[in-house]
Simulated scan of single mutants.
Amino acid sequence: MTLRIGLLLALVVTAATPAIAVNPDEMVADAAREARARTISAEVRCMVCQNQSIDDSNAALAKDLRLLVRERITIGDSDEEVLAYLVDRYGEFVLLKPRVNGHTLLLWMSPVLLVLSAVATLVWMSLRRNGPPPPALSEDELAKLDDIVL
C-alpha cells in the first residue's frame, strides 16, 4: 500500500513539472552562456503557442527562436540587446512580460482601474441605499393610513 502511494505521489510530482523543450543539440557548450540563454528564452513568448515561453514550447518557431537567442549570445550581445533584437523583429508581443511604456500603460493600469471602479461602485451603492431617511408622515397622512389599515 505504501509503495502504491509513493508511486502515485511520484507520478503526480512528475506530471506537475513543466516539460522543457530545449533539446541537447540546441544548447551552448559554455554553461554561463547557456544559463543566459535559458533566462532570456523564459521571457520570450512562443508566437505559435502564445501562452508558453520558447523555453517550454515544442513548436518549430520556438526552436528557431531558441537557436536565434543562442546565436546572438554567442556573437556577444548582452541580454538587453538580444531582447531588443527580438522586439524589433517580432514586436512587443514577443515578450511574456511587456515593458511599461505608452503603448502598454493601459494594460499595466487596468487591474488598478478595475479595483478602483469596483470600490467606487460599492461606495456609491452603499450611499444610495443608506441615504437620508424619508420625511416623516404628517398628521393628515397618519390619519389616512389609520383608516386604510383599520
Rank of each mutant, 00 (worst) to 15 (best):
A60G: 06
G76T: 11
A84M: 05
Q50A: 06
M47Y: 00
T104K: 08
Y90K: 08
Q50G: 02
S57K: 00
V94K: 02
W108Y: 08
R99S: 13
L114T: 14
W108R: 14
R72C: 02
D77K: 07
S57I: 12
H103K: 10
L65D: 09
A62T: 06
R66W: 01
V100Q: 05
G76L: 07
C49A: 15
I54H: 02
L96S: 03
E81W: 10
V87A: 07
S117I: 11
L105K: 06
L116I: 13
L96M: 09
R72F: 03
R99I: 06
D77W: 01
H103M: 14
F93Q: 14
V112N: 01
M47P: 00
V115I: 15
S78W: 04
N101P: 08
S78P: 05
Q52D: 06
D88K: 14
A62C: 03
P111H: 03
V48E: 12
I75A: 09
L67V: 11
P111D: 03
E81S: 08
V48S: 05
S53I: 07
T74H: 10
D56Q: 15
S57G: 11
R89Y: 09
W108V: 10
L106T: 07
L114D: 09
G102Q: 06
P98A: 08
V115L: 15
W108P: 02
C46H: 00
R89N: 12
K97M: 10
L96Y: 00
L105F: 10
V100C: 09
N101D: 14
N101L: 13
K63T: 12
K63R: 14
V115C: 11
D55I: 02
A59R: 07
E81V: 09
D79Y: 03
D56P: 00
G76F: 13
L95I: 02
V48D: 15
L83W: 01
D55V: 10
H103G: 15
R70T: 04
E92A: 15
P111F: 05
F93T: 15
S53W: 05
D79T: 12
R70Y: 04
L65C: 02
E80Y: 02
R66H: 05
V115A: 07
L116H: 04
G102T: 10
L83F: 04
R66A: 07
L86T: 02
M109P: 05
R70D: 01
A84K: 15
G91F: 04
S110Y: 13
N51E: 13
Q52A: 08
N101A: 03
G76P: 07
R72S: 07
L96P: 00
D77P: 01
N51Q: 15
V82N: 00
T104E: 11
L107G: 11
G91V: 05
R89E: 03
